[in-house]
Design a protein around this nucleic acid. Sequence first.
DNA 1: GCCAACGTTGGC
DNA 2: GCCAACGTTGGC
Length: 660
Amino acid sequence: MDLNEVGLGSGCDENFGEDSMSSGLTVELPPDWLKPMEEDEDNGAVGPKIPRKVRGAKVKRGRGRPRKPRNGITNAVDKWRTTSSAAKLNHPKKHQKAIIQSPNTTAQTDHSAQESPGASIPELKNPPRLTRASMLNADTSKRFVHSPSLKVGNVSVRTEPGQYTSELPLQLWLHPSLERISPSKIQSGGLPNLPEASCNGISEIFPRISECENCGTPFSIQKPGDKFCFKCRDKEEKNPSPANIVFKKAPKPKLKKEKADTAPDGAEEDEDDGLKKRNRRRCGQCPACLLDSDCGKCDFCIDKPKFGGVNKKRQKCRLRQCKFQSKFQFRRELIQRTTLANGITPNRKFKRQKKRLKRGRRKPWEKDYDDEEEEIGLSDEDDEELSYKVMGKKLDYSFKEENGVVYVEADIDADMPSVTEEDLYYNMSDSQDSSQVMDSAPSAPNVLPQLTDPISSVAMVEDMNQNGFLQIEMVRVGSPPTHFFGEALNAQQLVSGSQLEPTPVITQIFSLAATETESDRDLALMELFASLNQTVLPAHWIAVISRGPVIQLLQCSKLSNMADTVVQIQKGFFYQVSVQNQPLLLTHSIYSQHPIYMRRVEDVASLLLDLEGWSVCQGYPKLDMCLPWEPRMCVRAALCDLIIPKDQEHCGKCSQPVER
DNA sequence: GCCAACGTTGGC
DNA sequence: GCCAACGTTGGC
Ligand SMILES: [Zn+2]
Ligand SMILES: [Zn+2]
């Protein structure tokens, strides 16, 4: 799976003239300027055994083990504010060319017509190219998997068998526990290797995380029907159930490791095995897996030759350890964050959690590396205390900003007995102090009432159901990605979960003002994402995150004027509004009414609310392109405003089109 | 049983 | 051939 391919807008990149559009697939890469700096050459590799000084930290994305599959799909050109929009202004030539090649063509959008369930989409002569109707606008209703027993949680996205089309709607599938899926059906149904082979990448956005039916551990669903976490799957495979029985009530598998097990036979299995092994430690979907850059500060990073380390540990950066499948997950990450925030130098952070006199496998002739520790000046007492604070107790935290200084507020529950790493992880965002609810009614743009009653979320869910929205809207808005952040997902959890328990006092505030690294920026964005998912955003907006990382805010309701609108927030909190995949010009007045950076949930919410007050320019009819029996097509002027006041039908440029 | 160390290997 | 980072293992 390649999250680079997450494409939220639908289809058309013709404005940038580089996409052949043959497939109609949407491939939207995060802009290069947002990626970690690439170092193009490797100043002579040095043997791993030789400690060396830091050779500028190289950030390289194609790392060894996990394969990051590519495909031949043409990448969309940057459409980001600072690049594309600016490019439009700065490079009129290129832009002009694009316009000539492909004017912004748009189908006359008629939401009400599309909304009617029976309405079929007329066959267009060259639909993907000419219609800019986004996937969010497409008639998706038929593709949803309906189930009488809808469970609010455990929702993920997938395409139905045989439904790999260019305009993929947001689709949901119910957790397999609710649906019987036979393996043959899956295989013949053309659901190739989800998540690896997803056509437009939309399914990558939503984590397919579920709970292992055997051990309850959260895990990433690798393919439809997965019910067990990696471990249990392994065991299951070693004692496979008869082919036709799919959901056998697994008798608590004896989880004894059987060493000399059945020898794998067949190259196919080997390959499969290899692939499985490669991906064993990464789900590819969690925030950690989405991170591209090493922090350079954790113990594993410090150990890396590129950071001047001696390459003894040879592990992936702590921050990049998968939230679900890594064996090094989380505990130390928390330590790092805390200590980072605390201003303690990175070198001190990850020294032993446990005092060990000697370490395994050291060759007798090697230097005693314990000395090294003394060089650094770390006393064990320091170390243990630091670790204890974080590890032994529940820790919630949230970012706050005040006078330009960013703080981490950590809630530490002293009564909490020692918790597992998973617990820590899942408790991370349990603190509802930072959780805010916006009423779905677009009012009071800048006031975010505190979440008081979890029921309100439930009520909202029901509301939306009654209003006839799509299934996705029956999920609490903003919830899909929150699997990662441990937010309670279904109604029951909302009621019975930690929200009802008063969260302890904020006991520590750490300043983060100092140097901001690439990974800090990643984390800050993740943090915003987490906050967004603890917030009920304005009606039917959801936040998803994709590789980069990039936060994307989508309006899920086709009834909204903003159904085709996506707000994307990048590292550094730059944001961009685009309509049907086309970025608004920087000069658009909506930008002047909001902060340049979407740092805070409030800013985002306010922007979304504001957007709801606008509508999308419908362009002007392109008569010559339409044969009488074809649907009426509209095009937009080159410099179309895209978003216009609600009472207008098209923007100034489209009402007096220059072309023709 | 834990984990530092390191052999190993997929991906490039 | 190099590198990232996985799985394994011996010392504790
Ligand atoms: Zn790191
Ligand atoms: Zn992951």
